[in-house]
Design a protein around this nucleic acid. Structure first.
Ligand SMILES: [Mn+2]
Ligand SMILES: [Mn+2]
Ligand SMILES: [Mn+2]
Ligand SMILES: [Mn+2]
Lengths: 225, 225
DNA sequence: ACTAAACTTTAGGCGCACCTAAATTTTAGT
DNA sequence: ACTAAAATTTAGGTGCGCCTAAAGTTTAGT
């Protein structure tokens, strides 16, 4: 069995691979809040087990077996998050921490039972896709909300799930996955974004977010009509 | 935070204390499937933290703080077992292993949510009492089924929860907690016990169990009428 | 009371996953 | 091309929880 540490490293590498194609030691160490020297140690272990390919001083990449394990753990994580939210009414800003622990001990049998009870869901409470049992994950074409320009219409696809305070804030603004939004304006210098949630007809409920918040939201652009 | 190992030791000591008032190193080592030398090492650690009182060569006893932690973990274990059985249809012979892992990472918040959804239950699927949040546990007056004599009527209170095969067997015999039984006869030499489940009126469905099975069942004697 | 068996503890080690400090390699600026 | 800064790896060490082997203590039988 893979240790919790191994699973967390593989998961982190998977996540970081979406931005950098080769994950660099310091990025991994930052993400996992360990010392770079510790990350190097684990990287060597993972490379020995053929879970990552590793070039000294250059960084790591998941091998197919490493990616398989990462996706398995991510599937656990997201199914658990959704289950906690749906079945146990855990608020969406708290499901992540609970899932972070439970994901490592969930049995395949219980995974299947949860999957079934949820009706074989495809996304978690933050909009992230749930990998299938055999390790496939939906690839989507998304933009950061911070990349949109004035007048754009978009639907929120996913929000980052690991910052409790951010999630609570987004909840207060009602910026959930599946919400339709329009970019009313973007201010000069600070790039403050004025947003309207789309059923709203006038500017009464428009609000402003900054770049930090806007770059934690993934959207899919809608065609103008 | 207490490690999983510490929690498992305290739980084991609690369980063993019900039979021996001072828990001896080898009993603990047997129960936890570790080497006696390892148990000694952990015992010294627990004694240093004031979770057990320890006399060299004589054995250990839980202190009040140690018992509090043990009951907390047992509460987790039993709530989880019941939740898995009720909400996720996990068979009663499989809930134990899942709970054994989950009990150590369950948050107090999720514990409360599960407790509430189950309607503040008092016993787990095997009939064992669930300690209250503040660490009280119901004391019951029970006998082993193996201690009963011919003609006795009794109600099954609890069955031991940690042997999957035994539980599957008991399930097949329909010997669940709350089942009323009568001791029809006990054979000489082997002490084989012929049992009738009480709604049954004649001997058609009587069956025989041996001492191993009979001593894994806790009962409460019923007065004759 | 003595002794042998049974039990328990001590001594010494191991693997895991982390750390700090020092050495090495890469990188980026001039 | 050279050098200083940044990143990475190596070296050496820690705590945890386990192990085996050896030494010490209790126990039970004679
Ligand atoms: Mn994790
Ligand atoms: Mn999520
Ligand atoms: Mn356990
Ligand atoms: Mn139980």
């Amino acid at each position: 069995m893979n240790s919790q540490a191994v699973e967390d490293y593989l998961k982190a590498i998977y996540k970081l691979q979406s931005s950098q194609s080769m994950v660099v030691t310091s990025a991994l160490a930052d993400h996992l809040k360990v010392n770079p020297a510790s990350a190097t140690g684990m990287i060597k272990k993972l490379a020995d087990s053929n879970l990552v390919s590793y070039e000294r001083y250059q960084g790591v990449k998941l091998t197919p077996p490493g990616e398989k394990i990462a996706l398995e753990v991510i599937r656990h994580h997201r199914l658990i998050e959704l289950y906690l939210a749906e079945a146990l009414n855990v608020p969406w800003d708290q499901v992540h921490d609970e899932a972070e622990k439970w994901e490592h001990i969930l049995s395949e049998d219980l995974e299947d039972r949860i999957d079934k009870i949820l009706g074989y869901p495809t996304t978690d409470p933050h909009g992230a896709p749930i990998p299938s049992r055999d390790g496939n994950i939906e690839q989507r074409n998304t933009n950061l909300l911070s990349e949109l320009t004035q007048g754009d219409n978009a639907i929120i696809v996913e929000v980052s799930d690991d910052d409790t305070d951010m999630l609570r804030y987004l909840g207060k603004l009602e910026l959930y996955p599946q919400t339709n939004i329009q970019i009313i304006s973007i201010s000069p210098f600070d790039q403050l974004i004025t947003i309207r949630i789309i059923p709203n007809k006038d500017s009464n409920n428009d609000f402003v977010i900054g770049q930090k918040v806007a770059s934690s939201i993934l959207v899919s652009k809608l065609e103008e009509d």
